[in-house]
């Protein structure tokens, strides 16, 4: 998927800025960082939910184990699903604030430094 980057340098009708940014090492690493996070996170998140459904269907003995009082594994697992949604959103938010925005700033500084 989308490993061909060079086309934009010839096709970008909007001037050299696009090509320039596209070519910078930072931008490429920014894109890689984004993909490295977004796709595995989405896949893991979907798998985690689908696993819960699968366990409810086929591992009922395990899910019915009483942990304490009336609370069994299924309840705790279900609650974890809920919590994990927030945790993942929070991690993504932090990761993006930390990695994407500073890199973008560096690229801009460099662009401004070279073009003006």
């Amino acid at each position: 998927m989308s490993t061909v980057h060079d086309r934009s340098s010839t096709d970008a009708g909007g001037g050299s800025t696009y090509a320039e940014v596209q070519a910078t090492e930072e931008f490429q690493s920014l894109k890689r960082a984004l993909r490295r996070f977004v796709f595995p996170a989405t896949a893991a998140f979907l798998a985690w939910y689908l696993l819960y459904v699968l366990m409810s269907a086929y591992a009922r003995g395990f899910m019915d184990n009483q942990l304490f009082g009336n609370i069994n594994v299924a309840y705790v697992f279900g609650l974890l699903q809920f919590v994990s949604t927030f945790v993942l959103a929070y991690i993504y938010s932090r990761y993006a604030d930390k990695h994407f925005d500073p890199t973008a700033d560096r690229i801009r500084q460099r662009l401004e430094g070279t073009s003006t």
Partner: peptide, 19 residues
């Protein structure tokens, strides 16, 4: 599309780049 590279850059470059 011929200008797909440019479109993709606009989609994925953070706003602070001003693109």
């Amino acid at each position: 599309p011929a200008d797909v590279g440019r479109t993709m850059l606009q989609l994925h470059a953070p706003e602070s780049l001003g693109l």
